[in-house]
Design a binder for these strands. Structure first.
Lengths: 210, 210
DNA sequence: TATGTTTTGTATCGATTGGTATAAAACTCG
DNA sequence: CGAGTTTTATACCAATCGATACAAAACATA
């Protein structure tokens, strides 16, 4: 059992020996996210990464493992950061609201000038060489995971009478993910939030009413 | 003016001097397409390409220029080959048929075991490093070109009374392209033709009736 | 101040990248 | 057969890739 001084954060509690870090790992990770987001896993070289992260190569390897582990940690940060709207949307009371929040959340993300265009989980490692195969599968697995989460939410909605009896949560979830991933491609090509919102409006016409 | 022997093809007419090619450029291009399609522009190395194309490096450069030009020629071949259904669909008499043929054409392409998963124009160069920036723009420009062609087709449909007066061809074309590109991501993740067809069925519910 | 520990910066590692120089091989034409 | 032309195969180029070895620097503790 470890007793901490009251009011002291757990991270800073253990003042370990040795030379202290000259950089904030969280800030460095944020910067790495931008590089992978804009250039993809293979397009982001270690020289790119270290320059933007403002750390040298050994510091990167000591703090994040290697390029692949860094990418995985960047993916974690991405889903907890820019993609947080997705998880929040799942908590909306009605299925229709869930879908609207997902679509419009994706559209408005394209309007943030601080963020690269498109979606990291889509363009980060969609088609890659043999060496990056596991990274591709990692990203694909996360896309599939999002679809599963949405499907379960829609299954719940159906149980709650929030969807018609003939509605298929599996098909609907896949449709929503398809539109979302298409919006990611459009966003990567420079589509504006307004354009994406109009796409979302059209896509919502396919939603089963009442 | 050049007079050709009757019944002789123009390509084989000029029997030029020098050592003849030991490979068929068309076959080699087809093989290169598969490599770029499966691995993306950056993930496809020249070693990959020459091995699959079954030619050596100088032959590749003599016949196709360099990696970037080879990719452009592969894109040409892609639109004239696997993506030919898109152009044919535009010739359908009614707008609704155009969209159905596009969607179901994309779905059935995913069922061809001879072809890599997904869509070359989407995953070939979606997010890449600085050196491949022009290749990314090339692919993006072709995606935009497809959308323009579809928009014009829908504008014609509206003039012909084939779409409601309040329908917006620009929005509809963008919506269709978005769904199509989303289907490409789903296809890259291993979605079956049946699954994609069901997605298309849902997507078609957004289409303006009458 | 001395010791132990961790991070930092530099300088590099072998492997691979896209791209070529060079000469032998294989054809046409004279 | 010999000259001219083009393609082939091998070997190689500089540059960059991801990843490390090593020693100086900066801290805590004794």
């Amino acid at each position: 059992m470890v007793y901490l001084p009251i009011g002291m954060k757990l991270e800073t509690a253990a003042a370990q020996p040795g030379r202290p870090r000259a950089f904030d790992p969280d800030t460095a990770l944020e910067r790495a996210m931008h590089v992978f987001w804009a250039k993809g896993y293979e397009g982001a070289s270690l020289s790119n990464l270290t320059r933007v992260m403002r750390i040298n190569r050994p510091s990167l390897y000591a703090a994040f493992g290697n390029k692949e582990e860094l990418f995985r940690k960047v993916l974690d940060r991405y889903v907890d950061g820019p993609l947080a709207y997705f998880g929040k949307a799942l908590a909306a009371p009605k299925a229709r609201d869930v879908i609207e929040q997902i679509f419009f959340g994706a559209a408005s993300m394209a309007g943030d000038p601080r963020l690269p265009a498109g979606c990291l989980m889509v363009q980060g490692a969609l088609a890659v060489g043999k060496a990056a195969g596991s990274v591709r599968k990692e990203a694909a697995g996360r896309r599939a995971g999002s679809e599963v989460a949405l499907r379960r939410r829609l299954q719940r909605a159906k149980r709650e009478g929030d969807l018609p009896k003939n509605a298929d949560p599996t098909e609907l979830a896949r449709y929503v993910m398809t539109v979302l991933q298409g919006m990611a491609v459009q966003g990567a090509d420079g589509a504006s939030p307004d354009q994406l919102r109009r796409v979302a409006q059209v896509a919502l016409r396919a939603w089963p009413e009442r």
